[in-house]
Design a protein around this nucleic acid. Structure first.
Lengths: 143, 143
DNA sequence: TTAATAAAGGATAAAAAGGTCTTTAAATCG
DNA sequence: CGATTTAAAGACCTTTTTATCCTTTATTAA
C-alpha cells in the first residue's frame, strides 16, 4: 500500500510527536531504535519532512527532532503526499492514465469508493489524534 | 496500490476474457497492443496465470490465450494474490509484522476497514461480471 | 576557542521491480 | 517430414527503491 519510506516516515513522525507531546526532543539514533528502522535511511526521509516544516530539526548537543504544537494538526494525508505522492488517491487501479467518470476503466466505480475512503481517513486523521490513541496502552510502533 | 505486473495482468485477463466470451483466441501481440503494455513483460505475467490455470495458452499457428467458461467465475482477488501476494489484504499500514487487534499499530482499526473493503470488493468481483460491464460502451482497457 | 554532539548532504551499493532478448518447445499446415 | 507460427523459459539488462557510509555543517557547552 505505502512505500517503505512512507511507512518509516509515518512511524517516525508519530514517535517524534509522542515524545514532543511530553516535551522531549529525540535524536536520530533514538528514533531508529524505537521504531525499528534503518537509521541513515530514516534520516533521509526526515529531511524531506523538515524541509516541508512538518518536523523541526535542531543540530548540536541536546539537538534532535521535535514537532511543534501547531504542526500537531497536520493530517496524515500531507505526510503521505510528501513521501509517496498522490497516485494512491488519484491513480487508476489498472494503471490507466485517463481513467475517470467519463472514460472509466472497468473497475473505476468500484475502486473509487475504496480510494476515497482511504483519502478521507488520511485527510481527517491528524498527528495529534493518533498520539492521543498512542497514549492508550498496547498500541505499538515497533516490529 | 497494485504493482505494474498486477495492473498489466488484470488488464490482460479482462481483455482475454472479453474476447473468449466472443469465441476468439488472442495472441500475445494482440494483447499487448490492445491493453497498451510491454509485450515481453506481459508474456511473463501471463505465464504465471497459465501455470495457475486461470488462463489457457495454446501454442502454434492460430494459438493464443483464452479463458475457459468455468474460469470466468475466478475472482479478481485470486489474480491479485498470484501477482502481488496477500500483503495488500494482510499487511500493516505502517509495515509492522505483528500488527493485529491484540497488538495494533496506531492506525490499525482505521486502516483495517479500508483493507477489508478492498478485499471484499476483489473477492466478490468475478472476471465474468467485469466482462459484462465491459460490453457496455465507453469502458476502456487502454491508455 | 575547542571538543563534542547531532543533523545535512553527497557518493555509493544492494535489492527489487520493471523490462528485453534469444533460444526452446509445441502445434499446425502444406 | 519440414517450414512456420506461437507461447514458454531462461539469461540478461535497466531503473527505481531501499539502504549504507562518510564528510560537512551547525550548535552547544566547557
Amino acid at each position: 500500500m505505502f512505500s517503505k519510506s512512507c511507512e518509516y516516515g509515518l512511524r517516525a513522525v508519530l514517535f517524534i510527536a509522542q515524545q514532543s507531546d511530553k516535551g522531549a526532543k529525540v535524536s536520530m539514533t533514538t528514533i531508529s531504535e524505537e521504531i525499528n528502522s534503518p537509521q541513515a535511511f530514516t534520516a533521509k526521509i526526515l529531511q524531506k519532512l523538515t524541509r516541508t516544516d512538518i518536523v523541526k530539526a535542531v543540530k548540536g548537543p541536546h539537538g534532535g527532532f521535535t514537532i511543534e504544537p501547531e504542526m500537531m494538526d497536520t493530517k496524515l494525508s500531507e505526510i503521505v503526499t510528501i513521501l509517496d505522492g498522490d497516485s494512491i488517491y488519484k491513480g487508476c487501479a489498472l494503471g490507466l492514465k485517463q481513467c475517470d467518470a467519463n472514460s472509466p476503466c472497468p473497475l473505476h466505480f468500484k475502486f473509487i469508493e475504496i480510494r476515497d475512503n482511504l483519502q478521507e481517513m488520511l485527510e481527517t486523521t491528524s498527528i495529534k489524534s493518533v498520539v492521543n490513541d498512542l497514549s492508550l496502552e498496547s498500541i505499538i510502533l515497533k516490529r
